[in-house]
Design a protein around this nucleic acid. Structure first.
Length: 216
DNA sequence: GGCCAGGCCGGTG
DNA sequence: CACCGGCATGGC
């Protein structure tokens, strides 16, 4: 089922090419090992995009670039207040300034549990960093994933770890697949499975229970 | 002008 | 453990 849905989405939307670096989506990017600077930029983006549209995040990232502080050292040397002003367009800027400082000051090894101990990094952000920056095969669960799959079948209304386990046990542990699948989920959530769903023309009609009359 | 966006944290019951 | 309010800006 999980695999079938992946193929339906891929067939409909094509390869997405995530994560955008410097605003550019490049299908090749998810295959390559990233430089340290790229990993850092992706991690910053993952924090800034918490409950915020990517467009606003891009503005904040561009501000950081323009100021020459899109780097660990750059963020460390700014005061929290200065940093907050620079990232203002991303929303929750005071909160996110603290989160970026905490991440920049983090010295340990990059692993899920160490990331989760950083203030402001929860499961989704941690997994996004692991997957998109470090090519580590962990499936990223987000609000879109929850919405889409709970509509497909109420049995998929699971908590983060449970839903992630379902994906892990249903798919090859390949970061490129996880990367692509999550990108397709975001695309589909915006295209059809919105808050107010647009079911007409949905590529998942054949497998989705949403809106179907209950069987007798 | 209202609704919403690729969450997380701390407090409450 | 599940749920809720707070955090904030910009696009549609």
């Amino acid at each position: 089922m999980i695999w079938q849905i992946y193929n339906l989405l891929l067939r409909r939307y094509g390869e997405q090419g995530w994560w955008p670096i410097s605003g550019i989506y490049n299908p090749e990017f998810k295959h390559k090992n990233k430089s340290y600077a790229e990993k850092f930029e992706i991690s910053v983006g993952a924090i800034l995009t918490q409950s915020t549209s990517w467009k606003n995040v891009e503005k904040a990232l561009q501000n950081l670039r323009n100021r020459g502080v899109l780097s660990r050292e750059g963020i460390i040397k700014l005061s929290t207040k200065e940093l907050a002003e620079i990232i203002r367009p991303s929303g929750y800027h005071n909160q996110k300034a603290l989160k970026l400082k905490a991440f920049a000051e983090f010295k340990g090894k990059i692993a899920r549990d160490s990331l989760l101990n950083i203030r402001g990094i929860g499961p989704e952000t941690a997994d996004s960093i692991l997957l998109y920056a470090y090519n580590i095969p962990v499936f990223v669960i987000d609000a879109y994933t929850r919405r889409i799959f709970s509509r497909i079948n109420p049995e998929f209304s699971l908590n983060y770890d449970e839903l992630q386990s379902l994906f892990h046990s249903s798919l090859p542990h390949d970061s490129r697949i996880f990367n692509e699948y999550h990108a397709l989920i975001v695309k589909h959530a915006k295209q059809h499975c919105r808050k107010n769903p647009v079911c007409s023309g949905c590529p998942l009609l054949s497998v989705c229970e949403y809106g179907k009359p209950k069987e007798l």
